[in-house]
């Protein structure tokens, strides 16, 4: 699949993970790359972009036996943006799926 195309969806996936709870960078990268075939390095620039857009913020938290970890947290704007984008995206794939399946039926 087109990499550029995937990246937009991954942005939405990152927001979805953060909607549940705050995560540190590796957690997000790991969760996504376990399920979606992308290079591990892809998620970090996305996190950076989300932060500069004001959709997420970061804070440091001490971990037992290690340096403090940088956690990502959804802002109010990020949360609102996610809910809207999610609804649009789900509607979009629903419609796309219907069209593609119609196509298949016609050929048979």
């Amino acid at each position: 699949m087109n990499v550029q195309y995937k990246k937009g969806v991954i942005e939405l996936c990152v927001l979805a993970l953060l909607e549940h709870r705050d995560c540190y960078g590796y957690e997000i990268s790991d969760t996504i790359s376990r399920r979606i075939d992308i290079s591990d390095g892809t998620v970090y620039p996305i996190l950076r972009k989300l932060k500069s857009d004001g959709l997420v913020t970061t804070y440091l938290q001490e971990e037992s036996g290690g340096p403090p970890r940088k956690y990502y947290k959804l802002t109010e704007t990020g949360s609102a943006q996610f809910r809207q984008d999610r609804a649009e995206w789900l509607q979009f794939i629903e419609a796309a799926k219907a069209i593609m399946e119609d196509d298949e039926n016609d050929e048979k």
Binding site: S33, S39, D40, G41, Y44, P45, I46, K49, S52
Partner: peptide, 20 residues
Amino acid sequence: EIAAKLGDPGEIAAQYAAAS
């Protein structure tokens, strides 16, 4: 292995540049 899975540093840098 880790470096290979991360992808090309040049490409990663380009993504950061595109974002800002």
